[in-house]
Design a protein around this nucleic acid. Sequence first.
DNA 1: GTATTTGCAAATGATTTGCAGTGCT
DNA 2: AGCACTGCAAATCATTTGCAAATAC
Lengths: 135, 135
Amino acid sequence: MNYETLLREHHLKVTPQRLGILSLMHTMGHINIEELYAQIKEQFSSISLATLYKNINAMVENKLVTEVKVPNVKSKYEITKEPHIHLLCSACSEFIDLDLDLHPLLDAASSKSHYELHGSCIVLSGLCEKCQKEL
Amino acid sequence: MNYETLLREHHLKVTPQRLGILSLMHTMGHINIEELYAQIKEQFSSISLATLYKNINAMVENKLVTEVKVPNVKSKYEITKEPHIHLLCSACSEFIDLDLDLHPLLDAASSKSHYELHGSCIVLSGLCEKCQKEL
DNA sequence: GTATTTGCAAATGATTTGCAGTGCT
DNA sequence: AGCACTGCAAATCATTTGCAAATAC
């Protein structure tokens, strides 16, 4: 993925810090502010939390990045993609994407409610396969 | 609904403040901390925010109440019920429940991921019927 | 060259904690 | 009676803001 292009397409200037943020977000899949700050300090030891917040906010406003609010844990951030399901394991905190066709659900929701839908935040929680066996 | 019984069933002591909180939550459907504080002050003028937080947290821990994390706005609280969809209008901030059969989705998610699912937080956002017409 | 971004420090906002007094069972 | 709850004040944690120096375009 070319992060420079991605930034420019979303009307954001290219800075080394932003490239670092996107690269981490891409390799981690989902990441919260705390983890992001810890990781990015390894590349930019003097980066400040304020910069991180400003950048994340700018990216979310420009829809380059999506915030996923998750019950019980801190918000995660991911590079924006098509609507999909998130799964959270309440034992080991694994947090993964699940690509299922959401159109049947979205269509049903839309026609029953007469809403014109633009976004979704779907988090299902339970036990992952591994944790089911270990408990 | 009998709030006293509800509290006892969830191993929480009955206090006037808690009855007030549940009553408001039931009549409002969904409510955030700020709204709740403003409303409950009319019944208990000396109630403190700390008490409100402690009670909400206790109720959430005992699963009497569910926190709904919503993108862009403050968390809402509701009396716990079966999994369902929430709809948020991004123009007028209407926030409503939509009762659709979620079993097809949950079953598909479960069998594809091998997760044993326990909870869901589903928020769809868009424009309500009224706001579509006005824009 | 101009506008934006960065990093620091300080300010704000939200939530939690400690504790003395009160109320529930 | 004993333990949990309330309300206050203070502490903590998360996020935002203001500003001078550095950087992007």
